[in-house]
Design a binder for these strands. Structure first.
Length: 952
RNA sequence: GCGGAAAUGGCGGAAUGGCAGACGCUGCGGUCUUAAAAACCGUUGGGGGCAACCCCGUCCGGGUUCGAGUCCCGGUUUCCGCACCA
């Protein structure tokens, strides 16, 4: 393979040579490039099993930061390890080159997105080379290249053909900052994932991918090895709920469809609530209520999504004046509208069961609606039924509680205050107090156990604060005043103590509870046990045609339209006669025009581009208009793993024979932040491709690993404004690539990430220094054929290290991998000065070291390999195997415990038997001391580890 | 609120239920040096003792076990995801 000339090693070492990484690293990178050492072996000659590893490609922001190093160099080591194990490894890199920053740069600085992006790519590619990774740049993928995005368009057309893409008018998230719509997955806490601007919903006609068709299949991870946290996040995101769809007829004619997970509570429905945007609101609203309803809808629309989502917010809503009929008992239910019902989930309407749903309960309390329990508590107790008819007239908290009887009791050092609430309005006042912002006492604990009648709220353990206790004791029933006075004396301390006090309820009588207990108050189904209730009710509903079982998902279809320029144009033409017309495949790609005016106007800049916009209709030849939105960039990353294999192939998105050889991807790595975006979309894509007959497997990535985040030295996110950014280029200049790579691996568990520590890098630096001198100083020394205890010990350490490092690579345990190498080198340092450094065992050790070092620190490994006089390249060598017999210890140290405390240590032959070990332990001086005068009740012997004498 | 992860020296972290603190950083002492840096050697959880040794110690409270950082129950704190999802 290596026909290119490899630089010669320094022949005579006259002085002790120092390790100067800057000198050797660039040299070897050049050699690897020249000899095409890491060129992809596409055809897979020699029958090596393939290993396809990818680490998520970056956005070409222009600057490679330490986070990229952290994401890329440990997986590079893992890929190199696989290569040495004998796999045909492919580990590519590319750029996720479409997206907003390029466009923003264009708007801000007038640079064209293409030029800006390509310049950044060039820059980052250069920086990436200094990481010493085995990327084959010949396989690079750049998504903004027409040769790439042509296939985005092609996929879109296939999806359209297979009814997986559709256009629909729907309320979608709008980001005013980015001036585009966003997918649900890109909205985090009501803000844009990218620019953190508050988003809102608006009705727009957009393109969607039918990802929900695969909702159930996406819940299964059969055959793939993915981290549990990612799987759980995806599962939560998909949000599968089993329940029933029930139809409530109305006087106005149209029925209200409702989805519920608790059909067994149907008899407890006492009102209905529609989302303000629900289409039936218009028809159901009576003339008397119309004004109020319209005002509410207008106000709901004005509210920002963040306000609306707040769970702290008090429930609001208005009565429409309309009624619906409960199909199970014919009761008339008033229909309300309220913004706590989401138009995007289920049917946008709920049946309200205040006795068993917290939100409905709050709503019922506030508006004085009836509460009818229909499920017994799981413990079997049936509570009294209370109706809050007169609640609306209740007094406000500000005026103080009335009808309260408080009593105080002291038991040991605990202080109990019982509040007997005997009137409904006091109870409501308590609830209000909890909600009141800035109210001077927190009733947080009251939430889950609300009290009525003679039940008690107990303020428990107001201990440790004698002042409050004393005052409360003095004033007895008037404890509010006592606390108030304590607060005025020392507000901070008093509030602090009060805030920590849980409020207990003794026996809550009226509350919501969502137990799955037996059904009550439910006509003929009363008495149905909780475990059967849902199923039996669904059967009952289906038998009567009143409803049917249904599964609902939280996940929506994937919205792929974006009102921006820098993305893939949709291959779609709108024609007044023919409607939506796909661009014929042979006309692809639909090129993104270079001369668009990109200004954020809320419409795609393409809309104002006449040359792009107006085209003849491919069907009738009449005048047509192109779709001017572009595709979400997650489209690009959904299938880039296929394109890497043959990035310039022009007869399809990928080359079938090559794909067959290499797919699916064996090892994928990247940040967990993509759990519900990219990682979900790409799974969907592969499943869709499978169903279109393009591939024959179900999952794109067999094994996934997620790295953590590297924080700044101050444990804060690295950012220019904080000034805590670590520049990898500077580091490489100072300490060299290998040291940076090792340090990042050594930091801690890779999944956990960690804070940067600029002092810590000295460790790996010193380690490489020593590794260098251990090999270089002794590479030329004579070798004696000698065997004794010390050579056996050295070989043992060598083989143990091989074993440990191998295991660490298999489990992505990079930090312990480095630690094991350090221990090995420390041992070599000890032996180096002795005559042990002139033995075969020594030679074996120093030849093993570069091999074990090669994946993590590829440059120094190559240098040392050459210094040892071995043939280029160390990276073509076979990963060393360990000999279990050589790795085995011949003596073992056993800890001897007496009653679980270590009292002595024994060094025994590894093959010692239990009897002998115990006998030796008993006569051990210190152990005997602790045993004397006691009776041995039990003797525990753990082979190779310890002995425990249990004595009395 | 729901779901997940985590908590171990001054710091990052290690530890199939079996000697807690591997490895590294920092600190301290030493060798070399005119000196410093680098390098190398020793030491570095807390407390007591001249010493041999002893006691305490893995977020808090219980439990299981001969033995718990590890398993079980209850709680606290931090981080992450979702969040009025019917």
């Amino acid at each position: 393979m290596a026909t290119t000339k490899v630089p010669e090693a320094a022949t005579s070492v006259t002085r002790r040579e120092r390790y100067i990484p800057q000198e050797i690293e660039q040299k070897w990178r050049d050699v690897w490039a020249e000899t095409q050492l890491f060129k992809m072996d596409r055809e897979g000659d020699g029958g090596r099993p393939k290993w396809y590893a990818i680490t998520m490609y970056p956005y070409p922001s222009g600057d490679l930061h330490i986070g990229h190093w952290y994401a890329m160099t440990p997986p590079d080591a893992a890929a190199r390890y696989r290569r040495m194990l004998g796999f045909n490894v492919f580990f590519p890199m590319g750029f996720d080159a479409f997206g907003l920053p390029a466009e923003n740069a264009a708007i801000k600085h007038g640079a064209h997105p293409w030029e800006w992006t390509m310049a950044n790519i060039e820059n980052m590619r250069q920086q990436m080379r200094s990481m010493g990774t085995m990327f084959d740049w010949g396989q690079e993928v750049i998504t903004c290249d027409p040769e790439y995005y042509k296939w985005n368009q092609w996929f879109f057309l296939q999806f359209l053909k297979h009814d997986l893409a559709y256009r629909k008018e729907q309320a979608v998230w709008w980001c005013p900052g980015c001036q585009t719509v966003l997918a649900n997955e890109q909205v985090i806490d009501g803000r844009c994932e990218r620019c953190e601007t508050e988003v809102y919903q608006r009705e727009m006609e957009q393109w969607f991918f039918r990802i929900t068709k695969y909702a159930d299949e996406l819940l299964s991870y059969e055959g793939v090895d993915w981290p549990e946290p990612v799987r759980i996040m995806q599962r939560n995101w998909i949000g599968r709920s089993e329940g029933a769809r029930v139809s409530f007829s109305t006087e106005a004619g149209a029925a209200i469809e409702v989805f519920t997970t608790r059909p067994d509570t149907l008899w407890g429905a006492t009102f209905m609530v529609l989302a303000p945007e629900h289409p039936l609101v218009e028809t159901l609203t009576t003339d008397e209520q119309r004004g109020e309803v319209e005002e509410y809808i207008a106000q709901a629309r004005r509210q920002s999504e963040i306000d609306r989502m707040s769970t702290e917010k008090e429930k609001t809503g208005v009565f429409t004046g309309g009624y619906a009929i409960n199909p199970v008992n014919g009761e008339q239910l008033p229909v309300w509208i309220a913004d706590y019902v989401l138009v995007t989930y289920g049917t946008g309407a709920v049946m309200a069961v205040p006795a068993h749903d917290e939100r409905d309960f709050e709503f019922a309390l506030k508006f004085g609606l009836p509460i009818v329990p229909v499920i017994a508590r799981a413990d079997g107790a049936v509570r009294s039924v209370v109706r809050f008819e007169d609640v609306r007239e209740s007094g406000a908290f500000a005026e103080g509680l009335h009808g309260l009887d408080a009593s105080v009791a002291q038991a040991d050092d605990e202080f109990h205050i019982s509040l007997h609430v005997s009137r409904a309005d006091d109870y409501v006042a308590l609830l209000r107090a909890e909600k009141k912002p800035g109210s001077w006492i927190s009733f947080a604990g009251a939430r889950n156990g609300l009290v009525f009648d003679d039940a008690a709220i107990e303020l428990a353990s107001v201990a440790n604060d004698t002042e409050i206790v004393r005052r409360v004791t003095e004033t007895r029933g008037n404890w509010f005043d006592a606390i108030r006075r304590a607060i005025s004396r020392d507000p901070r301390t008093a509030m602090e103590i009060l805030r920590t006090q849980p409020f207990y309820t003794a026996e809550p009588d009226v509350t919501y509870h969502h137990d799955y207990g037996a059904m009550i108050n439910s006509d003929e189904l009363s008495g149905t046990p909780g475990e059967d209730a849902v199923r039996v009710t669904i059967e009952w509903l289906e038998a009567r045609g009143a409803g049917r079982g249904e599964v609902n998902y939280r996940m929506r279809d994937w919205l792929i339209s974006r009102q921006r320029y820098w993305g893939t144009p949709f291959p779609i033409i709108y024609c007044d006669t023919c409607g939506i017309v796909p661009v014929p495949e042979e006309d692809l790609p639909v090129l993104l025009p270079e001369d668009a005016e990109f200004k954020p106007t809320g419409e795609s800049p393409l809309r104002t581009h006449e040359g792009f916009l107006t085209v003849p209709c491919p069907q009738c030849g009449g005048q047509g208009r192109r779709e001017t939105d572009t595709m979400d960039t997650f489209m690009d990353s959904s299938w880039y793993q296929y394109r890497f294999l043959s990035p310039h192939y022009d007869e399809g998105p990928f080359e079938p024979e090559i794909a067959k050889r290499w797919l699916p991807v064996d090892q994928y790595t990247g940040g967990i932040e993509h759990a519900t975006m990219h990682l979900l979309y790409t799974r969907f894509f592969t499943k869709a491709m499978r169903d279109m007959g393009l591939v024959d497997f179900d999952e794109p990535f067999m094994r996934l690993m997620n790295q953590g985040i590297i924080l700044g030295e101050d444990s804060e996110k690295m950012s220019k404004s904080r000034g805590n950014v670590i520049d990898p280029d500077d580091l490489v200049f100072e300490v060299g690539t290998d040291a940076v790579r090792l340090f990042l691996m050594f930091l801690g568990p890779w999944e956990q990430g960690g804070s940067w520590n600029s002092r810590g890098i000295a460790g790996p630096q010193r380690f490489l220094d020593r590794a260098f001198s251990v090999v270089v100083d002794t590479a030329g020394s004579h070798v004696e054929d000698r065997e004794d205890d010390s050579t056996r010990a050295l070989r043992r350490r060598t083989h143990q290290t091989i074993r440990d490092v191998t295991k660490d690579y298999d489990t992505f345990s990079f930090n312990t991998m480095v630690a094991h190498l350090m221990e090995f080198v420390n041992e070599l340092m000890r032996v180096k000065g002795t005559d042990g450094a002139h033995t075969r065992a020594w030679r074996e050790a120093i030849e093993t070291l570069p091999l074990l070092l090669a994946p993590a620190a590829p440059h120094i490994a190559e240098e040392l390999w050459q210094r040892l006089g071995r043939e280029y390249s160390v990276h073509d060598q076979r990963w060393p195997a360990w000999d279990e017999a050589l790795a085995a210890e011949d003596t073992i140290e056993i800890a001897v415990q007496v009653n679980g405390k270590v009292r002595g240590r024994l060094t025994l032959p590894a093959d010692v038997d239990e009897t002998h070990a115990l006998a030796t332990a008993r006569v051990n001086e210190r152990v005997a001391e602790h045993l004397s005068g006691a009776t041995i009740v039990k003797e525990i012997y753990v082979p190779g580890r310890l002995i425990n004498f249990v004595v009395r």
